[in-house]
């Protein structure tokens, strides 16, 4: 993996990917008049990606073994999973109920103390409830935003 010496390298690779995506989606089977601006944007992205690659190659300096770990997947994944489930159920179950559970889950998973600590758990539950009540009063009663109710609310 000679390429991944620094985050600049990864950035360059990602950019090339974006450029390819932009080129394919805006040129393949599309109408020139409708896609005029997307095409211009795609070409500029490609040019910039090339410049970036050239710069990265020119400036290759060996940072070597102490390449920093960019993303802590282990910490992040539970949160992303909660977010995904939350967004999926949002419209089906109802905004306020799902939001309550999402809020509570994030607080429990990422709280600094042990997850089984009952006292803190109750505190988090209370905070989540109060937050949801305030949110309901603000959006539903005060601002008259009607969120989809789904099964519950």
């Amino acid at each position: 993996m000679i390429w991944f010496k620094s985050k600049e390298h990864i950035a360059a690779i990602v950019t090339v990917g974006i450029a390819l995506l932009a080129l394919v989606t805006s040129f393949y089977k599309t109408d020139a008049e409708v896609y005029l601006f997307p095409r211009i944007a795609a070409i500029i992205i490609t040019i910039l990606a090339t410049v970036l690659i050239v710069k990265v190659i020119k400036n290759t300096t060996n940072i070597g073994s102490n390449f920093p770990k960019l993303i802590k997947w282990k910490t992040l994944l539970p949160g992303l999973a909660v977010g995904a489930v939350y967004l999926f159920l949002l419209e089906i179950v109802g905004f306020y109920v799902t939001s309550f559970f999402a809020y509570f889950s994030i607080c429990v998973i990422y709280g600094r103390c042990d997850m089984t600590n009952r006292k803190r758990g109750i505190f988090k539950l209370v905070v989540s409830t109060i937050f949801m009540i305030v949110l309901f009063l603000l959006f539903w009663n005060l601002l008259h935003v009607r969120t989809p109710t789904g099964w519950l609310i």
């Binding site: 949160g79 977010g83 939001s99 999402a102 809020y103 994030i106 607080c107 998973i109 990422y110 709280g111 600094r112 905070v127 989540s128 937050f131 949110l135």
Partner: peptide, 9 residues
């Protein structure tokens, strides 16, 4: 954790 949940919701 409270901050993250609040901003998200």
């Amino acid at each position: 954790h409270f901050m993250a949940a609040t901003i998200f919701i």
